[in-house]
Amino acid sequence: MNIFRLAGDMTHLFSVLVLLLKIHTIKSCAGISLKTQELYALVFTTRYLDIFTDFISLYNTVMKLIFLGSSFSIVWYIRRHKIVRRSYDKDQDTFRHYFLVIPCLVLAVFINHKFTFKEVMWTFSLYLEAVAILPQLVLLQRTRNIDNLTGQYVFLLGAYRALYILNWIYRHFTEPHYVHWITWIAGVVQTLLYADFFYYYFQSWKNNEKLQLPA
């Protein structure tokens, strides 16, 4: 474990907690894409298949349970909670899951480190995580008004993967056999997808104005 990875995990944890807090306290999911949340639940499910078979550390297991629990409860809140569901904008959140899931699945079958079920599922979860934010970014551009918590949520999500890139660079130099080029490529693609959001986020923060994404 290195500081970059710990900072990345904490940022990721914080992003999920910010979202849960927003939905739980103000009982609203305005501006939140259910599609992205469902994709994240799928990412964690396919990535943590080994949660009960391979024990890595208490930290690793606890964090996996938190990510699984929080992502499914966010989906539950938006789908089932009698108050929260009313603020879900299903007419705007129309991104088709299968446009992302199917290409990632096909890619994972052909490009992976080892052709076993668990390894293909793990690789699928990496590819899917890289693009899972797209429905959310599309929704933000459609609804144009981005409330602070949603903006912070997306920012933290992008920051966590950027910190992971630093972690991979660090591990590449400190651990001889640490080779996970698939992870590195997926991670860089994921972070690049946030690049334009980061640009507008910093612009709005610098000019101290409301965050607006171009149509």
């Binding site: 990721h12 080994d50 992971y164 056999h177």
Partner: peptide, 10 residues
């Protein structure tokens, strides 16, 4: 040693 596919990251 080949690429270790043991995934210790989240």
């Amino acid at each position: 040693v080949g690429e270790s596919t043991e995934h210790d990251e989240l």
